[in-house]
Design a protein around this nucleic acid. Structure first.
Lengths: 161, 161
DNA sequence: CGGTCTAGTTGTATAGTACAACTTGCCAGT
DNA sequence: ACTGGCAAGTTGTACTATACAACTAGACCG
């Protein structure tokens, strides 16, 4: 790794400022992950974190296949199949048979799906705004940049993939 | 909220740099949460994210009650009870009856528990180090600070609570 | 055509979780 | 001292998300 280690580290004890910072990042990311996990199921009466993510992807992509969702989010196709079935049952998405390939179902948001997605997005946005309300703009921008950079890293970490 | 909004925002469309940054933070935190959730169960053959967290808390606190764990992590006491039972079965923690109050079991890490916890911590640390290897030290320090500040916020956010 | 690949579904199992009902022990008020 | 209520933990039950494996249906290649 590229971070210099000055002096012998005794079983993982950080010896540089950088190591201390990495330590803190690990700890705080873990805290965040735990909290996120705890609230993932009840972020919205209609929508779990996974459903929300899938719906968001459908909106961004303007419709895609279940297989694409599975690949993109590293979920099993059976898992996606059941999630999709639930979302369809709830009337939030619809399936359109691909005329070119009858194995394929292209998934699209319905009007109701767009509506719920917008609602949840807005409520999440409000929560984040609230939480970040007293941050100076410069810090917000830098924090956003760091997060993007972190997530863009090749997903090798056991804590972030 | 304290972030200035200049001009009418059309249904949540950000109109300032700060709004854009909040938007990005929300999106990236969501991505992180999803990935963390996906890997929470398989971060270690022995230890889920929750077990790891509980063990870590026991180490920090030097022993506490199941009820404290439940309160601290917003888990049901039955959930903690089963987790604790599993950790005890695995020989990672032990229960000591509180002599002052026989309803209470004070939980302590065993030697094996300390060992496994150290292993997992080290492997997580290595993953983070790896991922952050090419970050300048100044950025690491700032990122760490931002995360601490974010998590320290009163847990009102649906994505971070 | 026939073999193989791909998309998706369904059966089954597991983990983590919550809620409710229960047991045991503590304590305070009468 | 009894008794009623509160606190700590356990257990029964149910639900959700997930993975893996077996299967069906369609496409494509030779």
């Amino acid at each position: 790794m590229g971070v210099a280690v000055e002096g012998a580290a005794v079983e993982g004890v950080p010896v540089t400022t950088a190591e201390t910072a990495v330590e803190t990042i690990q700890r705080e990311m873990t805290i965040f992950a735990r909290r996120a996990r705890a609230s993932a199921g009840r972020m919205h009466p209609e929508l779990s974190l996974v459903s929300y993510t899938l719906l968001g992807h459908l909106e961004e992509s303007g419709g895609c296949r279940a297989t694409d969702l599975a690949a993109h989010y590293a979920l099993d196709k059976s898992t996606v199949s059941r999630q999709v079935a639930a979302l369809e049952r709830a009337g939030l998405i619809e399936r359109r048979l691909d005329p070119e390939d009858h194995r394929v179902q292209v998934l699209h948001l319905t009007g109701a799906g767009q509506e719920i997605l917008a609602q949840v997005t807005e409520s999440r946005r409000a929560a984040f705004r609230e939480r970040l309300a007293d941050w100076p703009e410069a810090d917000l921008v830098r924090f956003a940049g760091y997060l993007e950079r972190y997530n863009a890293g090749t997903s090798a970490g056991s804590a972030g993939d």
